[in-house]
């Protein structure tokens, strides 16, 4: 673990020198990045589609009729599935699930991971040992495998999938936060704050967290794309959300019996996942370049 730990700390230290998300011109420089623009445009469209799904979707996503396995046409722009359901409508509603799972899981695991990482790094000693033992245990396994293990225990369904993915991502954030805290803790302004009697909580919240923000933001962005892939993978395996919910992974799983005669069922749901993940990766990459954070991803 020493090598890994060392790497995290150097990484954190490098992040520190250049960090400043409030730096003048930061947003402007990101906005000039071609990758960032493409990413933001696609993401905006997806978010709007998810929010406006009831208005945009031409049909009810679960409405079946007798036009089964029809190829794309003017009536059904992306064709229909084996139960005569409109694929476009199902994909638009699927965006809701993907984005919701991606953002909620990363949001919650970010908060828990930051809390654990900052507490471990700041207090050290016994608290650090206990937290890091757990984090190291989780670090030995890929996030997706952990999510599969947890779904095996909790069972399937949207809330269990969210819990499983959330827990699976905690170690990434805890590690980065701890590494940052260990570096920042030694700075004189922290000593100064402590000397004048600023509370531990306020030091962590007001002084350490903002300075640790850059690598954490980059990791969070990348994690959202992995969380979306994880949800799609779980749904595809039949370990995801309820079968009645249209999700991209589930639509792909259902399409497998028909792929030889219905290419659209195999193509479009995958394209939807790829475009979403791609746009987030573009954005993450642009943020990484402009915040000058080195690669921090696990898987």
């Amino acid at each position: 673990m020493t090598a890994q730990e060392g790497a995290t700390i150097t990484q954190a230290a490098q992040g520190l020198e250049t960090v400043s998300i409030t730096r003048p011109g930061f947003l402007a420089s990101v906005a000039r990045d071609k990758k960032a623009i493409v990413g933001i445009v696609i993401l905006t469209i997806l978010v709007l589609a998810a929010i406006l799904a009831p208005l945009l979707a031409p049909y009810d996503p679960n409405n079946m009729d007798f036009e089964m396995i029809e190829s794309p046409s003017a009536k059904h722009l992306l064709g229909t599935d084996d139960l005569g359901r409109d694929l476009l409508s199902r994909l638009i509603y699927g965006a809701q699930v993907s984005l919701f799972v991606g953002v909620s899981t990363v949001g919650i695991s970010l908060v828990i991971g930051l809390f654990l990482g900052i507490a471990a790094g700041y207090y050290g000693g016994f608290i650090d040992t206990v937290i890091m033992r757990y984090i190291d245990l989780q670090w030995a396994f890929p996030n997706f495998i952990i999510a599969v293990y947890l779904v095996a225990v909790f069972g399937t369904g949207l809330s269990n999938v969210i819990i499983a993915i959330t827990l699976a991502f905690i170690d990434d954030f805890a590690r980065i936060a701890r590494g940052m805290v260990l570096t920042i803790k030694e700075e004189q302004y922290i000593d100064a704050a402590r000397t004048v009697g600023v509370s531990d909580f306020r030091i962590m919240w007001r002084h350490i967290l903002p300075n640790a923000a850059a690598p954490i933001i980059v990791q969070a962005t990348v994690s959202i794309s992995y969380a979306i892939l994880a949800e799609a993978g779980l749904s595809f395996l039949g370990l995801g959300v309820e079968a009645s919910t249209p999700t991209w992974g589930l639509i792909l799983a259902e399409s497998r019996s028909f792929i030889s005669r219905a290419w659209w069922l195999g193509l479009f749901p995958g394209l939807a996942i790829m475009l979403t993940v791609l746009s987030i990766n573009f954005l993450g990459d642009a943020l990484r370049d402009h915040l000058d954070v080195r690669e921090t991803t696990e898987i």
Binding site: L252, G266, G270, L278, N281
Partner: peptide, 18 residues
């Protein structure tokens, strides 16, 4: 490379089979 990183492996598998 970006496409490869963003593509779900099971979808690529399905495309290859098709």
């Amino acid at each position: 490379a970006f496409l490869g990183l963003s593509m779900p492996d099971f979808w690529l598998a399905i495309l290859l089979i098709i």
